[in-house]
Amino acid sequence: MSSAAGEHSSPAMGSWPGHAADRPFQRGYTTPPQERRAVADAHSTKLWLSTLLATVDQAVIVMIVIGCAWPVLWTGWHIVVGLTVAGFGVVLLGRQFRALECMAHEASHYNWTRANRRLNDQLATVLSCVPTGSRLDVYRASHLRHHRRFGTRDDPDLANYRQFGLEELDRSGILSFALDSLSRMPAYRRRWKETSGGLGRLPAMPFLWAVVLAIVPAGIVWGSWSAAFAATGVWLLGYGVLLPVVRFLGECNEHIYTGSQTVFDSTISNLGLMSRLFIHPHGDGYHTVHHLWPGVPHHRIRNLHRRLVVNDPEGYTARLRHRTRFLSSPVRGLRPEGRAGR
């Protein structure tokens, strides 16, 4: 999933080797005949499950903000414990907001429900878009252009990769990667603000959501306006600082356009534990399957990946580009005993 979808290409767009500026990349994968029924079945949605997961993600955010509000106000040596607890809470908040963005991404493909598209959009807006400050119709228009015009000058993700040099990030070590990424964050965040669409005339909606569901309740629970003030700080750090970082980490690992000719070859599946749990929640790490079949919802994508690993060893398993460690370069082919994603 790419949340910070840029609308305009950079001046150098189309200069990469093998990049057909006006013709989308070919799919690069043929579904085995014996798997076509399974692929078709994998497109079925479960509205109740998507609604439940987004609701739980919201509830966890609220509990983290309220739970971390009081410890940061402790005095004496207890303040170290309080700030440590709050620090862990802020990190978890970044993950939870990212999870809601992934659910908005699912809704952009009508993967909550295709039986009632209006309900799909209404529920996703309330449960996923309002807390994260995005607008589903604007995001959908940009993201579907990424799928339909993949690899062309109209591909908003390719524009981001070019503008921010995402393929050139220094992955030689944690510190070098962190410094290299941080140098790109100011411009990356500006682009996100310009292109996310916001919530129309209500760009403060995420803050209002936090006030109603977390900040004021924190003051009530702990009986202190100081706790409400602390809850505001915890929320601001999670939403305003950690979420953009987690979003950036997710986007920079999804594709390698250079030298690729097909969607299959230029898409990377991130199958490591940290990626699946923290950076790419709700199945977004199985990005190759997503680009092959965008209509497969989050609750079925992992099983479809595992099925193809077993049943298509030459066409899928041996060719799949993936990484299991965040800083590693992607490799091609899964080992038979390493059916990643289990």
Rank of each mutant, 00 (worst) to 15 (best):
S2R: 03
S2H: 12
A5L: 13
A5T: 13
G6P: 00
E7R: 14
E7W: 06
S10C: 09
S10V: 13
M13F: 01
S15N: 08
P17V: 03
R23H: 08
F25A: 14
Q26F: 03
G28S: 12
G28Q: 09
E35P: 00
E35M: 13
R37D: 10
A38P: 00
A38V: 06
V39G: 05
Q58S: 07
M63S: 12
V65M: 13
G67L: 09
C68L: 05
G76V: 02
W77D: 12
V80H: 01
L83K: 04
T84N: 05
T84G: 15
G87Q: 11
G89F: 03
G89Q: 04
V90Y: 04
V91S: 04
L93S: 08
F97L: 10
R98C: 12
A99D: 06
L100Q: 05
M103T: 03
M103G: 14
M103L: 15
A115D: 12
A115P: 00
N116S: 11
R117C: 08
R117K: 10
L119F: 04
L119M: 11
T125I: 07
V126D: 03
V126C: 04
V126W: 10
L127N: 06
S128H: 00
R135N: 13
R135C: 14
V138L: 08
V138W: 04
S142V: 07
H143M: 11
R148E: 12
R149G: 01
F150E: 03
F150S: 12
F150P: 00
F150N: 11
G151K: 04
R153I: 15
D154I: 03
Y161G: 13
R162T: 14
R162V: 13
Q163G: 04
Q163K: 13
E167C: 07
E167F: 04
L175C: 03
F177L: 06
F177A: 11
M185I: 13
Y188I: 05
R189D: 09
G197W: 02
G197M: 02
G198P: 05
L199E: 07
G200V: 04
R201L: 12
R201A: 15
W209T: 06
A214C: 15
A214R: 08
P217H: 03
V221E: 00
S224Y: 10
W225I: 12
A228V: 08
A230D: 11
A231F: 02
A231D: 01
L236P: 00
G240D: 10
P244V: 05
P244Q: 06
V246Y: 12
L249Q: 14
G250D: 12
E251L: 09
C252N: 11
C252S: 12
H255A: 09
Y257H: 14
T258N: 13
T258Y: 10
T258H: 14
T262D: 13
V263C: 08
G272L: 07
F278D: 02
F278L: 15
D284N: 13
D284M: 09
H287S: 02
V289E: 01
H291V: 05
V296S: 02
P297G: 03
H298P: 00
H299A: 00
R300N: 07
I301V: 15
N311M: 02
N311F: 01
P313N: 02
E314K: 03
Y316Q: 03
A318N: 06
A318C: 01
H322L: 09
F326R: 06
L327N: 06
S328K: 07
P330M: 03
L334S: 06
L334N: 04
R335L: 07
E337D: 13
G338K: 01
A340C: 10
